[in-house]
């Protein structure tokens, strides 16, 4: 140990230990394991079956096919959120106090939570994916390794986002409010549940006559959806799940390159924001 505290490898050791702690805790809470898989599975089966007739997508997907990337996105989102919400419990149970007064500092806390949570989310998504392949709702393609990589990046972004929300939060109730008002809409407006419409800067595209309020509403919604970085991740997820899908008639179809770039940049941005927030806020230190 040097005078300035701990070496980088010792800090990484601390981060690794905290990430392992997330795993250990997760598997000791069986209800979390089942809830994280069963809930999205139910969503997928119920919506996929219920909305089968009333849906038409670019490339001729059925609703259950269309909804598949969104379901996987939801699994990652839920698991990441439940993993990071534990930072509030850690603080209430006092565990966080002893971490914050250790020479390891806050960086291992962030890395441990994000990597620990992301690994759980990633594994859950993978289990779901294998189930989907098993029942034949999709088939494994050459894109599988890329799919795993993209899922890992999304999981990291979701956990970092969860940390941004959870770190300054005093109660889990507050987290639920943010989840319903912020995180769920973010997921809904990412082309997961309904396709993202076309958007042009000059206003709504209509066949004839003047644009109604409904048209303008759709135009604003499409704009928001196209600004949502998660839309790009979800679109690429859709492509990787079904590489033969023809998106030429879709309203929103940026290139793979664009999707990857947006996903990676958004992930870096949320991680940096999470880090700055954790380093800067001392309020959270004494919140018990």
């Amino acid at each position: 140990m040097t005078d300035s505290g701990m070496t980088t490898s010792a800090r990484m050791g601390a981060a690794w230990m905290l990430a392992r702690r997330e795993w250990t805790r997760f598997f000791r809470q069986r209800n979390r394991v089942t809830a994280a898989i069963v809930q999205p599975l139910l969503f997928w089966l119920l919506f996929g079956t219920g909305l089968r007739g009333s849906f038409e997508s670019a490339g001729g997907e059925s609703f259950s096919q269309f909804f598949l990337p969104g379901t996987i996105g939801l699994i990652v989102l839920f698991t990441a959120i439940f993993a990071t919400i534990s930072v509030i419990e850690d603080r209430r149970e006092g565990f966080m106090q002893s971490v914050l007064v250790s020479p390891a500092g806050r960086f291992p806390v962030l890395v441990g939570k994000v990597l620990g949570g992301a690994a759980i989310a990633w594994a859950q998504a993978l289990i779901f994916l294998l189930l989907v392949y098993l029942v034949g709702a999709a088939s494994i393609a050459w894109t599988f390794p890329w799919l795993l990589l993209l899922l890992a990046i999304i999981a990291i972004a979701m956990c970092a986002l969860g940390m941004i929300v959870a770190w300054p939060m005093e109660s889990t109730q507050g987290f639920h409010a943010i989840m319903m008002l912020g995180l769920m809409p973010m997921w809904l407006l990412a082309g997961t549940f309904f396709p993202i419409p076309e958007w042009s800067p000059s206003g709504p595209v209509i066949e004839s006559g003047a644009a109604t309020i409904g048209d303008w509403g759709g135009w604003v919604l499409a704009g928001i959806m196209q600004l949502n970085p998660l839309s790009y991740s979800m679109l690429e997820l859709r492509r990787l799940l079904n590489p033969t899908l023809d998106l030429s008639s879709a309203g929103f179809a940026p290139s793979s390159m664009t999707c990857w770039t947006v996903t990676v940049i958004a992930t870096i941005v949320v991680v940096v924001i999470a880090w700055r927030l954790m380093r800067g806020s001392r309020k959270a230190d004494t919140m018990v």
Binding site: M6, G13, A14, W16, P103, A104
Partner: peptide, 14 residues
């Protein structure tokens, strides 16, 4: 044991 090991890692012990 796990609690102690976690604490040790936070203080750079391994």
């Amino acid at each position: 044991d796990e609690n102690l090991r976690c604490q040790g890692a936070l203080y750079g012990l391994s």
